[in-house]
Design a binder for these strands. Structure first.
Lengths: 340, 340
DNA sequence: CTGTTAGCGCGTTCAG
DNA sequence: CTGAACGCGCTAACAG
C-alpha cells in the first residue's frame, strides 16, 4: 500500500490513474469527463469530478500533446522585446493566442545574427508547436520555407510570402515614407539626411535604400549618417554634427532616435522645424510626448499581432474557412511639429 | 510496406524509429547519440548522424519531456508586456533561459484580474514547465504557494517569500522614494500630490500608501489625484487641474505619466521646477528624453530578469549550490531637472 | 558496445 | 454507458 511511491522521493504529479482509482472507474472514463465527451452518467461524472478536485489533478499537457499530437503551444519568433512596437505586437499575439483556443505562447528571440536565427528555427521545430508566427528581419524566405518541411503552419510578418499553410502580413512603411520625403524634395529642397542605424533589420534597410534610390533617379543628393542603435549615441553624434551643420531634413528609423536629433538640435541653438526638420519612420509614444512633437508614421502593432495569431488559429482549426492569406497594413502619417 | 502511413494523410514527423531503421541500428543507439551518451562506436555514431541529417530528424521535445519528465520549458508570468520595464525584464529572462540550459520560455500574461490570474496558474501547472518566475502584483502569497503543491520551482519577483524550491527578488522602490519625498517635506513644503492610477498593482499601491501614511504621522496633507492609466488621460486631466492650481509637487508612478504632468504644466504657462515639481517612481527612457528631464528612480530590469532566471536554473540544476534565495534590488534616484 | 523492454501520462478504438 | 488494450515518440535500465 506504500511501495509504489518509491523511485524518486519526489514523485508527485497526480495522474489520471489515481483519479480513476479514487473515483472507482477506469481511466478511460476519467479521460471522457476531462474532455467533455458524452456518454457518461451524471453520477459517475460527478464522482470523477470530485476525485479530480480532491486530488488536485491537472492533466499533463505533455502527455496530452503526445497522445494527440497537439501541443497547444504557439511559437513566436521575434528579434527581442526591446522596442516598444515589438512588445506591443507581442502583447497582441499573446492575447489572441489565449482567447482563441487557449494556446500558450512560446517565445523564440533571435539575437540579430544568422546562426542564432538558425538555432531558433531548430528549437522551434523540436518544441513541437502547433503553429508559429515569425517576425524576424534576419531570416530569408528560404529558411522560412524550410520550417514548412516540418508541416508547421506559419504566419510571416514583414515578408511577402504565400503557401499552403502559410500566411503573411505585410507592413507597409516604405511607400508612405517615401511619399513624404518626395513631397519635401519637390519643394526644391536638397537637404535630406537619413540615419543609417546598424543592425536595424531588413525593413528599415529597405526604406533607407528606397530613399537613396529615389535620390539617384531624381538627381538629389541624399546623405546618410551611420550610428549604432542607441539614443545616447545618436544624441552625442548629432550634437557634434550640429557644431558644423546648421540645418537639414533628417529621417530617423524610430521616434526615440528622432528625439535624439531633436534634443541635439534644440540644444545647439537650432530651431525646429525652421532650421532642422525631423521625420521618424516608426513612431510611437515618444512622438507625441516630446516637444515639439515629432512627425512620424504609426501602425497599430498590437493589432498586427492580433491579426497574425488570429490567422494562425484559423489556419490550425478551420483551414477551409480562410479567405485571405495575405494582409497588408499601411502605416499612417502623423504630421506633427518637426516638419513643415 | 505502405499501409502504416494511413490514418492521417498528413503523417509527417520523422521519428526515432525511422532513423534507427535507416541507420541499421536500434532506437536505443539513436537515443544515445542524440543525447551525447558515451559507449557508442565512432562508426555507428556517424551512421546515425548521417541518417539523422538525411531524414531531417528532430527529436520531439514532447516525447522527450514525457519520458524524462522535463519539458525544458520555463514559465513566465507577467501582467503584460506593455510597459517597457516589463518587456526589458522579459528580455533579460528569455536571454538567460536560452543561455543557461537552452530553456524555452512560455509566457503567461495575466490581465489584471483575479480570475484570469487563477486561470493562468492552472495553465502554468498543466503546461508542465520545469520552473517558473512570477512577476505579478495581483497574486497573493497563498496563490503562489499553491503552485508549489505541484512541485514547480519558483522565483517570485516583488513578493518577499522564501521556501523550499522558492526564491525571490525584492524590488526596493518604496524606501528610496519615501526618502526623497520626506526630504522635500522637510523643507517645510506641504504641497505633495500623488497620482493614484487605477490598477497599477501592489507595488505602486504600496508606495502610495507609504507616502500617505508618512503624511499622517508627520501632519502633512498629502493629496491624491485619481486617473486611469493612460498618458492622454493624465495629460488632459492635469491640464484641467492646472487651470485652477498653479503649483505643487507631483509624484507619478511612471515617467511617461510624469511627462504628461510636465507637458500639461508647461502648456499651462507654469514653470518647472519653480512652480511645479515632478517626481516619477519608475523611470526609464522618457525621463531623460523629455525636456526638462524628469527626476526619477531607475532599476536595471533586464538585470532583474536575468538574475531571476539564473536563480531558477540553479534551483533546477544544482539546488545544493544555492547560496542566496533572496535578492534585493534597490532603485537608484536620478535627480534631474523637474525637482529642486 | 548494442538491442530489448518497460514505462512516461493520456486519448482512443473496440468490445462488452 | 464503461473498461481493456494499444499507441504517441522517446529514455532508461537490463541483458547480451
Amino acid at each position: 500500500m506504500e511501495d509504489n511511491k518509491s523511485k524518486r522521493m519526489y514523485k508527485d504529479r497526480v495522474t489520471i490513474y489515481e483519479v480513476a482509482k479514487v473515483a472507482g472507474v477506469s481511466l478511460a472514463t476519467v479521460s471522457r469527463v476531462i474532455n467533455g465527451h458524452t456518454n457518461v452518467t451524471e453520477k459517475t461524472k460527478k464522482a470523477v469530478e470530485d476525485a479530480i478536485s480532491r486530488l488536485g489533478y491537472k492533466p499533463s499537457a505533455l502527455a496530452q500533446g503526445l497522445a494527440n499530437s497537439r501541443s497547444t503551444h504557439l511559437g513566436i519568433m521575434i528579434p527581442s522585446t526591446g522596442y516598444s512596437y515589438v512588445s506591443n505586437m507581442l502583447d497582441g499575439m499573446i492575447d489572441m493566442a489565449k482567447i482563441y483556443g487557449g494556446y500558450i505562447t512560446s517565445i523564440f528571440v533571435t539575437r540579430r545574427n544568422k546562426e542564432d536565427a538558425a538555432q531558433m528555427i531548430e528549437s522551434l521545430i523540436k518544441s513541437h508547436v502547433d503553429g508559429a508566427v515569425i517576425y524576424d528581419d534576419l531570416l530569408g524566405t528560404d529558411e522560412i520555407r524550410s520550417i514548412q518541411n516540418y508541416h508547421i503552419p506559419l504566419i510571416v510578418i514583414g515578408h511577402d510570402m504565400e503557401g499552403d499553410a502559410l500566411g503573411s502580413i505585410n507592413l507597409e512603411f516604405k511607400e508612405p515614407i517615401l511619399d513624404v520625403v518626395k513631397e519635401h524634395l519637390m519643394t526644391g529642397a536638397d537637404d535630406v539626411t537619413v540615419l543609417d542605424i546598424v543592425n536595424q533589420g531588413k525593413m528599415v534597410d529597405d526604406i533607407r535604400d528606397s530613399i537613396l534610390e529615389y535620390g539617384q533617379v531624381s538627381g538629389k543628393h541624399i546623405q546618410t549618417l551611420q550610428f549604432n542603435d542607441s539614443y545616447g549615441i545618436v544624441y552625442a553624434g548629432m550634437k557634434e554634427y550640429f557644431r558644423t551643420h546648421k540645418s537639414g531634413y533628417f529621417v530617423a528609423p524610430r521616434d526615440s532616435l528622432g528625439a535624439a536629433i531633436l534634443n541635439a538640435a534644440l540644444e545647439s541653438g537650432l530651431r525646429v522645424p525652421e532650421d532642422v526638420q525631423i521625420l521618424a519612420e516608426i513612431g510611437g509614444k515618444y512622438s507625441y510626448i516630446v516637444r515639439p512633437q515629432i512627425s512620424s508614421f504609426s501602425m497599430d502593432m498590437f493589432k498586427v499581432g492580433s491579426i497574425a495569431v488570429r490567422m494562425l488559429t484559423k489556419l490550425l482549426n478551420e483551414p477551409d474557412k480562410i479567405k485571405q492569406k495575405t494582409f497588408k497594413m499601411r502605416a499612417t502619417f502623423n504630421k506633427r511639429e518637426t516638419t513643415k
